[in-house]
């Protein structure tokens, strides 16, 4: 960029330039407008780079019953000697749902507090859901635990991350026994190792299957299909408009 074209801001930092620099510093999530690289696309959209905005973090007040949950959790953590900002790295409130991002070291403690504290009382854990963000270096594997409090009729979500290089997360089976099969399923599909699980074996795939199918770097595994004289490629090879 030539300097003749830059507007004269009189020595002040240019907010537009700063925002642009921030944007360029974000991680690239995917490139290209059309999903696969094999379509022979000549539109010129192949050079598009979609960047991921910074992870959301909601500021207080969170609204509805979320503040109370955060306060009681903070009190309980302090009683046990941990600090709220360490144990809960990020709080996200979006679309009427509360998500607590918890570093994996503090997961069991936070879960135990959520379950036992009388004002929180999240008795029921509704399983583990794994998500694989291939582009998010250092935080590729996420495990999401939706919790339900029947006493107070509330919901909250815990989210834990682990890098691909070290995919270990402490197991919640001692706190919520229902996580037994859910953690096995998440191991089966994502390769997340839940430390402390009594029997972390494959549950859906055959015992000797290689690979973890729901990871983003695992192919869908479809085959081309012949139909009435034409051959239709499998879904992962077709043109995608992501």
């Amino acid at each position: 960029m030539t300097s003749e074209n830059v507007p004269d801001t009189g020595g002040q930092p240019d907010p537009a330039a700063e925002a642009g620099a921030d944007r360029l510093a974000q991680q690239v999530e995917r490139t290209g407008m059309f999903g696969t690289g094999t379509t022979g696309d000549t539109s010129g959209y192949g050079g598009l780079q979609v960047r991921r905005p910074d992870p959301l973090s909601t500021a207080r007040p969170y609204g509805s019953y979320f503040d109370e949950i955060a306060d009681r959790l903070a009190e309980g953590l302090e009683r046990d000697g941990a600090a709220f900002p360490e144990a809960v790295s990020r709080v996200v409130v979006e679309r009427g749902e509360l998500t607590l991002h918890v570093p994996r070291e503090h997961l069991v403690a936070v879960a135990r507090l959520l379950r036992d504290d009388p004002a929180l009382k999240f008795e029921m854990c509704l399983g583990v859901s794994g998500v694989h963000y291939l582009w998010d270096a250092g935080r590729e594997l996420h495990a999401v635990y939706p919790l339900l409090s029947i006493t107070h009729n509330r919901r909250v979500r815990l989210e834990v991350t682990a890098p691909d290089a070290d995919p270990r997360i402490p197991s919640l089976v001692t706190v919520y026994p229902t996580c037994d099969w859910h953690e096995r399923e998440t191991w089966d599909f994502f390769g997340l190792i839940f430390e402390g699980h009594p029997a972390l074996t494959r549950i859906e795939m055959p015992d000797d299957w290689k690979g973890h199918p729901q990871r983003k770097d695992y192919p869908l595994g479809g085959i081309p299909v012949e139909y009435r004289g034409a051959t239709v490629p499998p879904p992962e090879d077709r043109r995608a408009y992501s």
Binding site: P219, L220, G221, V225, P235
Partner: peptide
């Protein structure tokens, strides 16, 4: 008969 709508790793086609 053919794997149906599930053209993927998990189903015998």
């Amino acid at each position: 008969s053919s794997g149906g709508m599930f053209n993927n790793y998990a189903i015998v086609q």
